[in-house]
Simulated scan of single mutants.
Amino acid sequence: MVKGAASGSMALRFVLLMGMVDLFGDTTYSGGASMNGLFLASVGAGAAVISIAGGLSEFLNYLTRGLSGYFADRIRRRWPLVFVGYVLNLLTVPALALAGHWQVAAGLIVVQGVGRGVRKPLVQAMLSYTSSRYGKGWVYGVNASLDYAGRTLGPLVVAGVLLLTTEFRTAYALLVIPAMLALITLTMARIRFPAPSAFESPEQQHQAEVTEGFTRSYWLYLAAGACFAAGLMNFELISFHLSRSGVTRDSVPLFLALATAIGALASLGLGKLYDRVGLPVVLVAVVATATFSPFVFLLPVHLALVGMVLWGIGQATQDSLLTALVAGVLPRGRRNLAFGLYYAGYGVGWLVGAVAAGLLYERSHIALVAFAAVAQLLSVPIFLTARRRPEPRPAEWSSG
């Protein structure tokens, strides 16, 4: 194990390098996501199919995280599974350029979710070995901000391609470029940092894995995360609604770009605040997110921009704050499984929400908005119940 300042410098490089992997990866993934709903509609899918396809992809994304975390803990090898996940996640996006029927396109979208699920908890677990030095909120905030930079860039690229060519297939095909850059950067990370656990001493690992087993707080955080997910909605349905409301298809990706740019900034700010304040930051972010749906689905379309800002805060809450909460109740020797199970529960909430949203959309937009807001606000008392004691500050973790 490398110690002292050199260890800190290498840990920072690892955080930034994995962030670059996600920047390129989410340029690919989010670029595709910004037009998936429109593309499915163009090949014959309706609102329910579009919402359920996006929701099933996210559900399998989160469900697969539980299985991936379990197997990683059993075989003690993360990198091979990480590579499998990124390949499935990224190469299926440009493959949509070849899809001629909505069933094929929906199937490829579902596979994307499986790929994300295989690699996500393992990357989060590897990053957790750097949090004893920098703090959970900061580490996951930096990773999420680079992730969101890619999520912002991807829709902008797609919007430009659609403006110039109006061809979905051309836009999908061009996304093979950032996909390959992500895989090249991932290979560099594997060569340079084969064992991220070396960033922590045994004593620091003992401090970071703070419980002997899965605690009541852990399961309550899982339940609260599932409620939050149920009300967040996927962009496939949002983009379908925007196009119905008169937004041109080359402009729809710009709404996602705005949301993800906000997510990038919010991840850094909220992550830093979380390390200082703790749970109250999470609660404020959840309440803010719960107000997004009326702006998108009930008010004039220009006010949907406000809704997308709030939706972007929700994405940052999902990817940085909730992850940091779970990282505070990791059971010893089972951190991959802990992240994986949490994400599996989150995915159940996401699927329930996606199915409900898809069915409610065609019947009552008011009922859809009420469902989304109530589902997310239900997480607030659960988060409060889960909090038993203040979390240790980063300085306490690294003092040993």
Rank of each mutant, 00 (worst) to 15 (best):
S7I: 07
M10G: 00
L12Y: 03
R13E: 04
V15Q: 06
M18A: 06
V21T: 03
T27A: 13
G32E: 07
A33M: 09
N36P: 05
L38P: 07
S42L: 06
G46W: 06
A47L: 04
A48F: 08
I50P: 04
G55V: 02
L56Q: 10
F59P: 09
Y62P: 04
L67V: 15
G69W: 05
Y70Q: 04
F71H: 12
F71P: 00
F83E: 03
L90Q: 02
L90M: 08
L90P: 06
L91H: 00
T92Q: 06
L96R: 09
A99N: 01
V104H: 03
V111Y: 03
G115D: 12
R116E: 07
R116K: 09
L122D: 01
L122M: 01
R133T: 11
K136T: 12
W138I: 09
G141P: 05
V142Y: 08
A144I: 11
S145Q: 08
Y148D: 14
Y148A: 14
P155T: 05
V157Y: 12
T165G: 07
T166Q: 14
Y172E: 12
L175I: 15
I177Q: 10
I177W: 13
A179G: 13
A182D: 05
L183W: 13
L183A: 14
R190T: 04
R192S: 04
A195I: 05
S197D: 14
P202D: 01
E203I: 02
Q205S: 04
Q205Y: 01
E209W: 04
E209D: 04
T211M: 00
G213V: 05
T215K: 02
T215R: 00
R216W: 04
Y218R: 00
W219E: 02
A224K: 10
G225F: 12
A226H: 02
A230G: 10
G231S: 11
M233F: 07
S243K: 15
S243H: 15
G246C: 12
G246N: 09
V247W: 11
T248N: 11
V252F: 09
L256D: 05
T260D: 06
G263I: 03
L268W: 12
L270H: 07
L270N: 05
L273V: 03
D275I: 08
D275N: 09
L279T: 07
V281M: 04
V281Q: 07
V281R: 06
V282G: 06
V284A: 13
S293C: 13
F295M: 08
L299Y: 14
H302P: 03
L303V: 14
V306P: 14
V306Q: 11
Q318R: 10
D319H: 15
L321H: 10
V326G: 00
G328N: 09
G328K: 01
R335P: 04
R335W: 01
L337D: 10
A338I: 04
Y342N: 01
Y343D: 09
A344S: 07
G345S: 07
Y346A: 07
Y346M: 12
G347D: 08
V348I: 15
V348D: 10
W350I: 07
A354T: 00
V355I: 15
A356Q: 14
L360W: 12
L360Y: 14
R363S: 11
R363G: 03
V369M: 02
A372G: 08
A373C: 01
V374S: 10
A375K: 08
V380K: 02
P381N: 14
T385W: 15
A386I: 13
R387Q: 15
R389F: 06
P390Q: 13
P392A: 06
R393K: 06
E396Q: 07
S398D: 13
G400F: 05
